[in-house]
């Protein structure tokens, strides 16, 4: 399980470029911080009111007044800062956050994302996700390819309430990477080790096309 999560997070971290300001959602996206490539410096924004988030603290240094949006203690690197929630979301909507990574319940071929409610069953709330989808320049959706019952999370059309309409730019699962292009929608660009283009077709309900230059064995765990 954690290997799947780290496979997704490690590939996602390859999307980072030096100097970016990024926001990491709860769950798998948080793991992206552990896989930042050498030579790439990124500034981590936490929507509850911090930029310059550093590694998790040692047990003795954890401070209840210093947490991330998931309620876990954080550290702040030199040069980091704290601010109120209106300033924080001004940064997000104002285009000062380059890239966001977040999980989802469903994502579809038009880039719609549904992540906060299964009507009648589960209500989490959108938290800051709607603002992040609308405001971040690039939205990376990190998700396991299928849910526990085996059904594709990459759906033909989202049926749960949307968190964002047409906002997903890149979808990264433990099996494949799809990138959305203005003219042709999502394109399958990479297939992870252990899967074929046909395997991806069999487990994906979302509309997409296959790149002429699709990379096989592009990422994932070594055999």
């Amino acid at each position: 399980m954690s290997d799947i999560k780290n496979t997704i997070a490690a590939r996602a971290a390859q999307e980072l470029t030096d100097g970016q300001v990024i926001n990491l959602g709860i769950g798998v996206p948080t793991l992206v911080a552990n896989h930042v490539p050498p030579g790439v410096d990124v500034v981590i924004h936490s929507e509850n009111g911090a930029v310059g988030v550093g590694p998790a603290p040692d047990a003795l240094c954890s401070d209840p007044d210093r947490g991330n949006a998931g309620g876990a203690p954080i550290t702040l690197i030199a040069g980091g800062s704290y601010f109120d929630s209106a300033t924080s979301f001004g940064m997000i909507r104002g285009g000062h956050v380059d890239m966001t990574f977040l999980g989802t319940l469903q994502v579809d071929g038009e880039g719609n994302i549904a992540s906060y409610e299964i009507p009648g069953k589960l209500v989490a709330g959108m938290g800051g996700a709607m603002d992040l989808l609308a405001g971040a320049k690039t939205v990376n959706v990190l998700t396991e390819h299928c849910s526990k019952d085996g059904s594709s999370k990459l759906v033909e059309k989202c049926t749960f309430p949307l968190t964002g309409a047409g906002e997903a730019d890149v979808i990264i699962t433990e099996r494949a990477l799809f990138r959305r292009h203005v003219d042709k929608g999502f394109v399958l660009e990479e297939v992870a080790r252990g899967y074929t283009v046909d395997d991806i077709k069999a487990c994906t309900d979302m509309d997409y096309t296959v790149s002429d230059a699709v990379k096989l064995n592009a990422y994932g765990l070594e055999e």
Partner: peptide
């Protein structure tokens, strides 16, 4: 919170965090 909302005992207005702050 989730249960009272799903049972209809609690009125809930969900507002995106940035919208709420603003």
């Amino acid at each position: 919170f989730e249960q009272q909302y799903l049972n209809g005992e609690l009125e809930v207005e969900l507002v995106p965090q940035g919208t709420l702050a603003e």
